[in-house]
Amino acid sequence: VNENNGRMAWVAEVNAIREHQDKQAFARLFSHFAPRVKGFLVRGGAAPDQAEEIAQDVMATMWRKAHLFDPARASVSTWIFTIARNRQIDIIRRARRPEPEDLPWGPEAEPDQEEQVALQQDTERLGKAIAELPDKQRELVEKAYFGELTHAQIAEETGLPLGTIKSRIRLALDRLRHAMR
């Protein structure tokens, strides 16, 4: 329960940025996430200076895009990961990153509190499930995200575990589609 409160607390910090440009909330998110983004990028092969620069950039993007964050569809760690990944492709690989079309989304599609809590709990469970994997399997998953496995190598690893949060995300998508009718 406590760890899940932790996740909802990060959601509250992002909300504080969205609603009143709260710089203290930003500072707390920065202290927690920036060193993790930097560590992740360096583990994936980036030079420390470049990783520092990208981590800065990721946190600035998070500030500018706080109003686009939907806690019924992603936890803060997932969201920050996707921002970091896109900047990494942009800056390190110098390639374009085609993104799926956004779902229609306006301020009237207010996320439901219960769905948010459920999604955050599910992500928490997913994190635990990864931590508890046998070493060899967990290392494979990590390698895939550090860019050390090609697509063909991922395809060969039939035992790569999948998460359990699919149904909730599906629900959140249905709600969004509905809000547009």
């Binding site: 800065q56 920050i80 949060i165 995300i169």
Partner: peptide
């Protein structure tokens, strides 16, 4: 995809953190 991105987020959070430069937060703010 959202599920696989959540896995990525969890992998990122499990990776050893690396301290930012001393003035990093001031620069960001």
């Amino acid at each position: 995809l959202a599920e696989f991105e959540a896995v990525g987020g969890e992998v990122m959070m499990r990776t050893d953190a690396m301290a930012m430069n001393a003035d990093a937060l001031d620069i960001a703010l």
